[in-house]
């Protein structure tokens, strides 16, 4: 239970898709002009992530990983199909998005009307594929956690687009320098928000070094290591 809660908060705040790994920036910038459309897209992203990450987890576990085909018989045990992950994941995502679109259209026309136009866009949203790829590279151990990861990453993305849409609606009344208007100021605001979100980094560590290392994404990890080395070096020099 505790690991579920930890993963949930970690994915929403610390590893926030937009602010820590820049996933789904294209639609984040393109669809954040109005709060109402941002909410629609955000909801669709939560939905699709929560569906595709567990499905891709199953694919990864039973087909793609080295040795995953063992259930077919001992002679399949040394197959390593992991080079096919990209094509399998993207095919799953494209199919699931189509399927979700059909199901939603059939059973909830109201939801379809509000999500409808965003669903096809989502197949090529990097946040969705990124969710599956991070699920794979972080070796999430169970399908429950995979679902949790998909759902909470989606919520993190939703929060980010909601926040920037609200800010952009207000900033229309401010006197921004002309060349910065629109895209430029959005980038800079997102940067400032990302700095804010960095402060969540200490939330779950509680002095536990092991947990802290896990909390960093691969990229931030190397950066951190670099800075830590440098700090260590600097202190050495100072001594």
């Amino acid at each position: 239970m505790l690991e579920h809660i930890e993963l949930f908060f970690k994915s929403i705040f610390i590893d926030n898709m937009v602010f820590a790994t820049f996933l789904g920036m294209c639609s984040y910038l393109a669809v954040s002009k109005k709060v109402s459309t941002a909410v629609g897209l955000g909801a669709a992203v939560i939905f699709v992530l929560a569906v595709t990450v567990p499905v891709n987890w199953l694919l990864d576990q039973y087909i793609l990983q080295p040795g995953a085909l063992k259930w077919l018989g001992a002679e399949y045990a040394d197959y390593d199909l992991s080079f096919l992950s990209f094509i399998m994941f993207i095919a799953t995502i494209a199919t699931m998005v189509q399927l979700v679109e059909i199901v939603v259209e059939k059973f909830s026309p109201a939801l379809y009307n509000s999500l409808g136009i965003f669903l096809p866009l989502i197949a090529v949203n990097c946040a969705i594929l990124g969710g599956s790829l991070f699920m794979q590279s972080r070796e999430i151990p169970s399908i429950g956690l995979a679902f949790n990861y998909g759902l909470s990453s989606g919520i993190g993305w939703f929060l980010a687009i909601l926040a920037i849409a609200a800010i952009r609606e207000k900033i229309r009344y401010s006197n921004v320098p002309a060349p910065l208007r629109g895209l430029g100021i959005t980038f800079i605001i997102t940067g400032l928000m990302a700095i804010g979100f960095m402060s969540f980094g200490g939330m779950l560590t509680g002095g536990d070094e092991g947990a802290k290392e896990e909390a960093e994404t691969a990229q931030v990890e190397t950066v951190k290591k670099d800075t830590e080395n440098k700090l260590a070096n600097n202190t050495k020099v100072n001594e």
Binding site: T21, P177, P179, L180, R181, G184, F187, G191, A194, D226
Partner: peptide, 25 residues
């Protein structure tokens, strides 16, 4: 080296580019 600065650097590039070419504003 941290992620937020990438956003701000791109923001500044956009700023420079648009100040040089007013049509893009």
């Amino acid at each position: 080296l941290l992620s937020p600065m990438a956003l701000i650097v791109v923001g500044i590039i956009i700023w420079v580019q648009r100040s040089r070419n007013k049509d893009l504003i």
